[in-house]
């Protein structure tokens, strides 16, 4: 048992969490009214709150989490390393940098599609660089260091842009990008990134089988018949699409992509391919719950979702890293 029920259980929990996100808020809404509003009945004010505020926000959190979860699981499989993750590897930071660039220079006003495309481009440049490095070195440390380098460099350029920002409004906007939030997201924004996240997910799922083979190491994986180049290309493409689009939606949210696959892996017999979907579901669940927490927290300035994710995720990252040392020498 166990493995067979994993996906149904997680899916159910996701639906419950999304529903709870509609119930809870600055003013809690009773169960029947939420249900009525979702189904299209009820009073217009309720419908407005649910359909334009709470539901899109919760869905944005879920979608962001799911994209980061599946990207994390896939990158961990490709790089054979439990610490690989869009945030840690600097993929998210690179994506927010290119997105900020597009915003700063007003490219986004030309066409709304430019925003997700810019973020995706940044994510893919970073992922391609990492996979190039990964094919040359077996060293985990090198990869993480490259990630640190990418993050710092992107962070520095973002700071530069912030210093030069013409008005406080665009500064606040950029802070949102760096810290990550799903506040005030609309269905239009979700629909803008959804195709990219879906395409990325398909790329990763179709090529999931190769990640199982990579468990053996690159040489042996090639030996059992894996086309390494193609596997790298599709994983980079898929993770780049999904991560980039999630950044376009919510900014850079770190560590979800580490925590979720780490929890899932023992439940799927440590097979990277089988960890993809459950990791996506769990990461989505985590962000929806974290966002409920953010909204319920009584504070004047709303805490950013990315900050909460890092508060939980960063210690988990350190813990995983320490345990890894202990077992792998």
């Amino acid at each position: 048992m166990g493995e067979r029920w994993l996906i149904p259980t997680l899916s159910f929990l996701c639906v419950v969490a999304l529903f709870a996100a509609c119930l809870l808020g600055s003013t809690a809404m009773p169960f029947e009214r939420v249900l009525a509003a979702i189904l299209g009945g009820a009073d217009p004010a309720d419908r407005l709150v649910i359909w334009t505020i709470r539901l899109p926000r919760a869905l944005a959190a879920w979608l962001t989490g799911a994209a980061l979860g599946i990207s994390g699981a896939a990158l961990q499989g490709l790089l054979r390393n439990p610490l690989a993750e869009p945030g840690v590897l600097g993929v998210s930071a690179s994506a927010s940098l290119t997105a900020t660039f597009a915003l700063y220079f007003g490219l986004v006003t030309l066409n709304p599609w430019i925003l997700p495309l810019a973020a995706i481009m940044g994510a893919m440049i970073a992922t391609a660089l990492l996979s190039l490095a990964a094919s040359r070195t077996q060293s985990v440390v090198t990869l993480i260091l490259i990630g640190v380098g990418l993050s710092s460099f992107s962070g520095a350029l973002m700071s530069l842009l912030m210093n030069l920002a013409p008005n406080p409004f665009s500064q606040a906007d950029m802070i949102n990008w760096m810290l990550g939030t799903v506040a005030n997201r609309s269905f239009a924004e979700i629909l803008l990134v959804l195709p990219f996240i879906a395409a990325g997910t398909v790329c990763l799922l179709v090529n999931g089988r190769g990640l199982s083979a990579l468990t053996l190491g690159e040489d042996a994986a090639a030996g059992v018949g894996l086309n390494l180049k193609r596997q790298r290309l599709w994983t980079v493409l898929g993770a780049g699409l999904a991560t980039g689009a999630s950044v376009a939606l919510a900014g850079a949210i770190g560590f979800v992509g580490i925590v979720a696959p780490h929890v899932i892996r023992p439940l799927v017999k440590h097979d990277p391919a089988r960890s993809l979907i459950p990791s996506a579901l769990l990461a989505g669940l985590i962000l929806v719950v974290a966002d409920i927490f953010v909204r319920l927290l009584p504070s004047t300035n709303e805490l950013k979702l990315g900050v909460v994710a890092a508060l939980i995720g960063a210690p988990a990252f350190v813990w995983i890293a320490i345990r890894r040392r202990a077992t792998d020498g």
């Binding site: 468990t215 040489d219 042996a220 030996g223 017999k269």
Partner: peptide, 13 residues
């Protein structure tokens, strides 16, 4: 093809 044995990336069954 069996290359020289390397540690597996994950503790698979």
């Amino acid at each position: 093809y069996l290359p020289q044995v390397r540690q597996l990336a994950w503790p698979n069954q």
